Amino acid sequence: MTEYKLVVVGAGGVGKSALTIQLIQNHFVDEYDPTIEDSYRKQVVIDGETCLLDILDTAGQEEYSAMRDQYMRTGEGFLCVFAINNTKSFEDIHHYREQIKRVKDSEDVPMVLVGNKCDLPSRTVDTKQAQDLARSYGIPFIETSAKTRQGVDDAFYTLVREIRKHKEKMSKDGKKKKKKSKTKCVIM
Rank of each mutant, 00 (worst) to 15 (best):
A11E: 04
V8Y: 01
E3S: 13
I21A: 15
T35Y: 03
Q43N: 09
N26G: 10
D33S: 10
K16Q: 01
R41W: 03
I46G: 04
E37H: 02
E3F: 03
G10I: 00
E31Y: 06
E63M: 03
R41V: 04
Y32P: 09
G13A: 07
E49W: 01
A59D: 14
I46F: 04
H27V: 09
L23Q: 14
Q22L: 01
E3Y: 06
E3C: 10
L23N: 15
Y64R: 12
D38M: 04
E63I: 01
Q43C: 09
D54I: 03
P34H: 06
V45H: 07
R41F: 03
C51I: 12
D54G: 03
Q22E: 12
S39R: 10
I21T: 15
A11D: 05
D38Q: 03
N26H: 07
G13Y: 03
V8S: 01
L53I: 12
S39P: 08
D47Y: 02
S39A: 07
F28E: 11
G13C: 10
V9Q: 00
P34W: 02
A18E: 09
R41M: 08
V14I: 12
A18T: 08
V8C: 04
L6G: 00
D33V: 09
V44Q: 10
N26D: 12
I55T: 12
Y4S: 12
V7F: 06
A18S: 10
V44A: 11
T20G: 14
Q22A: 03
T35D: 15
E63L: 01
H27I: 07
V7T: 14
V44G: 12
E37N: 15
L23W: 12
I55M: 10
L56N: 14
R41H: 09
A59T: 14
E37I: 10
K16D: 00
G15T: 00
A11T: 02
D30W: 06
S39H: 11
D30A: 11
I24R: 13
T20M: 07
I46M: 05
Q43W: 02
V44D: 14
Y64T: 15
Y64V: 12
P34A: 11
C51R: 05
V14T: 07
K42L: 08
G48S: 05
I46K: 10
K16G: 07
Q22H: 08
I24W: 06
K42M: 06
L53R: 01
L53Q: 04
Y32Q: 10
D38W: 03
T50F: 05
T2E: 15
C51V: 12
T20C: 07
A59V: 09
S17R: 08
I21Y: 15
V29N: 13
Q22T: 03
L23C: 13
I24N: 15
T35A: 11
V8R: 00
A18Q: 04
C51L: 04
I21V: 14
N26W: 02
K16I: 03
E49H: 04
N26A: 14
L19S: 13
L23T: 11
E49M: 02
V45T: 11
T58C: 14
Q61M: 07
G10D: 00
P34L: 06
D33Q: 09
G60N: 12
G48F: 01
D33K: 07
E37V: 11
Y4M: 03
G10V: 00
I36Q: 14
A18M: 09
V9C: 09
K5N: 12
L53N: 02
I36G: 13
L6W: 00
I21K: 15
V44C: 12
Y32A: 13
D57A: 05
E49V: 06
Q25T: 03
S39L: 04
Y40N: 15
T50L: 03
G60Y: 04
A11Q: 07
G48Y: 03
L52F: 12
L52H: 15
K16A: 10
I36V: 12
G13Q: 07
V8A: 01
D47R: 02
D33F: 07
I24G: 15
V8H: 00
D38L: 06
E62A: 07
D30Y: 04
A18W: 04
V44I: 06
A18D: 15
K5H: 08
V7L: 02
C51S: 05
Q43V: 06
V9D: 02
Y64E: 15
H27Q: 12
P34C: 12
V14Q: 06
N26T: 04
E37M: 02
D33G: 10
L19K: 04
D54Q: 14
Y4D: 10
L6K: 00
Q25F: 01
R41S: 10
H27C: 13
F28D: 10
K5I: 01
D38G: 13
K42Q: 08
K16T: 11
T58Q: 08
Q61P: 12
V45S: 12
G48T: 05
H27E: 11
V14D: 02
E63Y: 05
Q61R: 08
L6Y: 01
I55W: 07
E62H: 10
E49I: 03
K42A: 08
D30K: 10
L56V: 15
L56M: 14
A18R: 06
I55H: 06
A11H: 04
Q61D: 13
V29E: 13
L23A: 15
G12C: 06
E31H: 07
Q25C: 02
T2P: 07
S17Y: 04
Q61I: 08
G10F: 00
V45L: 10
A11I: 15
I46R: 03
S17W: 02
E49A: 04
Q22I: 00
E3H: 11
H27N: 12
G12M: 03
A11G: 03
G10P: 00
P34V: 09
G60F: 02
T58Y: 06
Y64S: 15
N26E: 05
Q25Y: 01
Q25G: 08
I36K: 15
A59Y: 08
G10C: 01
G48E: 08
R41C: 08
A11W: 02
D57N: 08
G13H: 03
G15N: 00
T35I: 03
G15F: 00
Q61K: 05
Y4A: 08
K16L: 02
C51P: 06
L53G: 04
T35G: 13
Y4V: 04
A18V: 03
G13M: 14
E3P: 15
I55D: 13
D33H: 06
G15D: 01
Y32M: 11
Y40D: 11
L56W: 11
Q22F: 03
E63H: 07
V45N: 03
L23E: 14
E37T: 05
Y4P: 07
T50C: 08
H27P: 05
A18F: 03
K42R: 06
E37F: 08
T50A: 09
D38A: 08
Y64I: 12
I36R: 07
V8D: 00
G15V: 00
L6P: 02
Q61T: 14
T20F: 10
